[in-house]
Design a protein around this nucleic acid. Structure first.
Lengths: 401, 401
DNA sequence: GTAATAAGTCAAGACATTTGACTTAATAAG
DNA sequence: CTTATTAAGTCAAATGTCTTGACTTATTAC
C-alpha cells in the first residue's frame, strides 16, 4: 500500500539557471547579428551594461568571444565589438546512411574543419560499428592535429541517421534501416568515444545545419524538406528543433498518399530511393552521386519523368507543411546532388495556394537549402553545439545543470 | 548613413524571472498532481524546502493556494498538502462562431461558473461587436455577483474564432469568416473591456481546454483534431500550445486533398459545414445542435453516408498528424454534437498504420475529447489562465515581466 | 575650447535561492 | 513505555547574480 504514484513537475531554476541563460543569449545574439558591443548587447537583451560586461568578460576568459578593434560612430566613446571565436568549441558530426558513413569536425560557428567518409559493410551494426568508431577516432585525431587543445573544447558527438526510431517494425522493409534503428547506437557511441552523444534523424540534422549556417539562420519558424534516401521534414519551431514525443516528428516520408485506388508512402514516390528504383540503379554504387548529378544536369529523358512526378509530390508536401506548421519559410534541401535539387525546385513551381500567401510576406515561400552530401553530418555536429550554446527553456532548469 | 539595422536577440533574465518561473512551476505541479506538501514540491521541482516554503507562503497570501488538513503517512512529521484555490483567478472566454457567440467565466482550475450566448447578426463585425461586448459585460457582471472581488482576479479575456488569420483573401469564400478575420478584433475587445485580450483559432482553443481539464491534461505532446464548422488541429508541443509564425498552425482544414482528379480542401469534406451542405440544412437554425444530435443518434441513413465519408477523411487526418507531429496521443473533439462525434469515432476505427504504433505504448492512439458546444469558449478562457500561470520559456524573459 | 553624447567601470545594494543547524511530530523497535 | 529513527518544516546566515547610480573615458558637435 505504498504511495508510488510519481509526482510529475517541471524543474525549478536558480541563479545558475539565470546566468546560464544570459550567457546563451549573448552567444545567440552574436551568432545572429555578428559582432556587437557590450552596449549593443545590453540594449538587445534588456540586461544592464554591467551584467553584460561581466558575462562578456567571462566568455572571453573561456575563449568563446574576443574583442575587435574599436569603432567610432559619432559622438561618444568608441565601442568595442565582440565576436564569436570559431575555435571556442568543436563538435563531431556523424552521418550513418545506407551504404556510407560520414564524419565531420565543426567549430562553434559551423566551419567544417575535417571531413572523412567510409563505406558501410552490409552486415549491419555488428559490422558497421567498428568502421564508424574508427572513422570518428580518425576525424578526432585529425582535428587535434589542426587545433591545439581541441579535445578540451569538444562539446559532443552528434549522430544522424534515417528515422523513424522505436517503431513497431513492419518486418524488414528494404526502404528502412531497421537493424540500425533498433541497435543501441547511443550507448555504443558513448562507450566507444567517451563523448556526450546525441541522435536525430537526417532531416532534423539538415534543419539544424540550415539554422546554424544556412537559409534558416536566425529564423524561429522554418520547415526543411529533406530529400535523401528517404524524405523527411526538419522542424524549427519557436526557434528550436522540434523532435516530437519520440524523436520522430517530421517523418513525412511515412505519410500515406492515396492515388489510383491504393495507398503509397510519400517516401516511395519522392526520394532518392525511389529514383534509384525507377532507374534500376544499385544504390551501393560509389559513383552514384556524380552519376545522378550528371543525369540531372544534362536532362536525361528517363530522369525527367521521375522529376516531374516527384516535383508534384513535393509541391503537395510544401503545401501541406505550410498548412500544418505555418512557418516563415520552407527550405528544400537534401543529400541529393545539387543539380537534381535545382531541377526539382524548378519543376515544383508554381506553388499550390495555401495560408502562406499572406499580405506583407518578406521571405519567399520556398527557398533552396544545402544540397550537399555533407550537410547531414554538418547538421549532426550542429546538434551538440546548439545544445551547449543556444538559449532554450530546458537549459534554464535545474535538472539540466 | 545611419545604422538602422535592428539588432535581434532573445531577452535575458534576472531574479524576477527566476522566481516567476518557480511560482509557475509550483502551480503547474499542483494542477497536474493535485494537492502536494511543501516537501513533495521541493523534491519534484528540485528546489530546496526553504524556497518552496517561501513561494507557497507567497502564493497563499495571494489566494492562489491553500492548505488542507495534515496527513500522517508513516514516520515523521505529518505533511500539510496544499491545493490550488479555484477562486484564485478567473478569465473570460469568448467564442465567435458563424451565427452565434458564446462567453464563459472560468476559474483557475477550469470550472465554468457563468455561461451565456447570443445570436450574431448577419451584418458582420460592425453589427456583431456590440452584441459581443454586451455578452462579455453580462458574463462579467454575473461573475461579480457570484464571486466577491472577481474583477481583481480577472487575468484576461480569451477570444477564439475560426482561422486562418491574416491570409491574402480568396474573395469571399462562404466557408470562411473573412469579415471577422480581417476585423481588428483584439483592439476592439481591448478598448471595449479594458482587459488583456488574446486571440486564437477555435481548434487551438479546444486544445487549450483539453490540456487544462480534458484528455490532454498533463501531456506534453498532443494533437486535438477539432471538428466544428470547419476542421482544425490544436497543437500541444513541448507542453505548450504551438501557434506557428502567424497564429495559423494546425489549420489543416485548408489542406488540399486530391481525389477524382480534382483538389478539395479537407474542410469541404469533413466538417459541420460540409454536413450542413450535404443535408441542405440552414446553419443559422437555432435548433441545429439538437437536430444533428438526433439524426446521428438514431442512425439516419442520410447522415450515415456522410459519417462514413467524413470518417475516412478523419482516419487519414489522424494518420497524417501522427506522422508529422509524433504526439503521445490524438484527441478527437469538436463543437459537434456528442452523438455525432461518437459515431465518427466508431466509424474511424481501425486506424491506419503509422509511426505511432510503437512498442510499449501506454496511451491509446486516438481518444475522445470534449464534444460540447461550450468547449471552445472554455478553451478561449483557458488561454489567459495558461499565459498567466503555466511555466513557459517566454515567461522567464525580462521583456515579459 | 567647451558642451554634449555614448561606452564602459566601480562599488554598493537588492533579491532570490542555498546551506546547515534546529524544531516539531509522528511511527518503529526494543 | 521509552527511545531511536524518520520526515516535515523553520530559522538565520551565506551565496550568487543582477541592478543601481555615480563616475571615468573618449569622441564629435558647436
Amino acid at each position: 500500500m505504498n504511495d508510488v504514484r510519481p509526482i510529475r513537475a517541471k524543474s525549478g531554476t536558480n541563479h545558475e539557471g539565470t546566468s546560464a541563460h544570459n550567457r546563451r543569449v549573448m552567444i545567440d545574439a552574436l551568432r545572429i547579428n555578428g559582432a556587437l558591443s557590450r552596449a549593443d548587447l545590453a540594449r538587445a537583451t534588456r540586461l544592464t551594461k554591467q551584467t553584460v560586461s561581466n558575462i562578456i568578460e567571462e566568455l572571453e576568459r573561456d575563449g568563446l568571444v574576443s574583442s575587435q578593434e574599436a569603432v567610432r560612430k559619432g559622438r561618444g566613446q568608441p565601442s568595442t565589438p565582440y565576436r564569436l571565436v570559431p575555435e571556442g568549441a568543436f563538435a563531431i558530426g556523424l552521418q550513418i546512411d545506407r551504404h556510407v558513413t560520414r564524419a565531420v569536425a565543426v567549430d562553434l560557428v559551423g566551419n567544417v574543419l575535417v571531413r572523412d567518409e567510409a563505406g558501410l559493410p552490409a552486415g549491419g551494426p555488428s559490422e558497421g560499428t567498428k568502421v564508424i568508431l574508427d572513422l570518428v577516432a580518425g576525424v578526432r585525431a585529425e582535428l587535434a592535429g589542426i587545433v591545439q587543445q581541441s579535445e578540451k573544447r569538444l562539446v559532443g558527438l552528434g549522430a544522424a541517421m534515417p528515422g523513424p526510431f522505436g517503431v513497431a517494425g513492419s518486418g524488414d522493409d528494404p526502404w528502412m534501416m531497421e537493424a540500425w534503428q533498433k541497435f543501441p547506437l547511443l550507448e555504443t557511441l558513448t562507450a566507444g568515444t567517451g563523448l556526450d552523444v546525441g541522435l536525430q534523424n537526417d532531416a532534423a540534422a539538415a534543419a539544424t545545419a540550415e539554422r546554424m549556417v544556412g537559409a534558416a539562420h536566425g529564423l524561429d519558424h522554418a520547415v526543411c524538406l529533406f530529400v535523401g534516401y528517404g524524405i523527411g521534414a526538419g522542424l524549427i519551431l519557436n526557434g528550436e528543433l522540434y523532435r516530437g514525443a519520440n524523436g520522430n516528428a517530421g517523418e513525412i516520408g511515412m505519410a500515406l498518399l492515396f492515388a489510383d485506388g491504393k495507398s503509397t508512402p510519400l517516401e516511395h514516390r519522392a526520394s532518392l530511393a525511389s529514383l534509384y528504383q525507377y532507374l534500376s540503379i544499385d544504390p551501393a554504387d560509389p559513383d552514384l552521386h556524380a552519376h545522378i548529378n550528371d543525369l540531372a544536369s544534362r536532362g536525361d529523358p528517363g530522369i525527367d519523368t521521375w522529376i516531374e512526378a516527384a516535383a508534384a509530390d513535393l509541391r503537395w508536401s510544401i503545401h501541406l507543411v505550410e498548412t500544418v506548421f505555418d512557418p516563415q519559410t520552407v527550405i528544400l534541401c537534401g543529400s541529393a546532388p545539387e543539380a537534381l535539387v535545382n531541377r526539382l525546385i524548378a519543376a515544383i513551381g508554381p506553388l499550390l495556394p495555401s495560408i502562406a500567401e499572406r499580405r506583407g510576406r518578406t521571405l519567399p515561400r520556398l527557398q533552396p537549402g544545402m544540397a550537399d552530401p555533407w550537410s547531414v553530418a554538418l547538421g549532426a555536429a550542429a546538434g551538440p553545439i546548439s545544445r551547449a550554446f543556444d538559449p532554450h527553456f530546458a537549459a534554464i532548469l535545474k535538472d539540466s545543470l
